[in-house]
Amino acid sequence: MRDRPSGAELLAIARETLLGELLPHAPDAQRYNALMVAAAMAIAAREAEAGDGALVAERESLTALYGEVRNADEPLDAALGRLNRRFAADLRAGAFDAPDARQAAAWRLLRQATMAKLMECNPKYLEDEG
């Protein structure tokens, strides 16, 4: 097994050092760069922390939407790519136009996946909603 600290823990302390120790000494022209570095590290740390939970849930929702039985041999990434490709094409073709339970399920699925991404990329965005 890997030694500690974990990748996420390293990113967290590296980010603290960047913001607390380096940023006050950064010339004005470099402040924006430093803040972008901190933002990128925060996303990577939250992603590492979150693991695959939301992606597994997304696959479950997609297989349920299409009435598929999950193929245990198909890697998660491959399954998500394949299912989302089909879903995207069906949405464009109007397969979810009818205002029925299937349409509601499709919208909920999109919302769920988007919320999971938002929690990793910019959790403050949801706080701002008030």
């Binding site: 790519g81 989302n84 490709r85 879903f87 995207a88 094409a89 949405l91 464009r92 109007g94 979810f96 136009d97 499709a106 919208w107 999109l110 996946a113 988007t114």
Partner: peptide, 16 residues
């Protein structure tokens, strides 16, 4: 390179 179903959802709505 990747599919974007949420954008496809939006585009279909914008079309109809």
């Amino acid at each position: 390179p990747e599919p974007h179903p949420a954008l496809e959802w939006g585009l279909r709505w914008l079309e109809t």
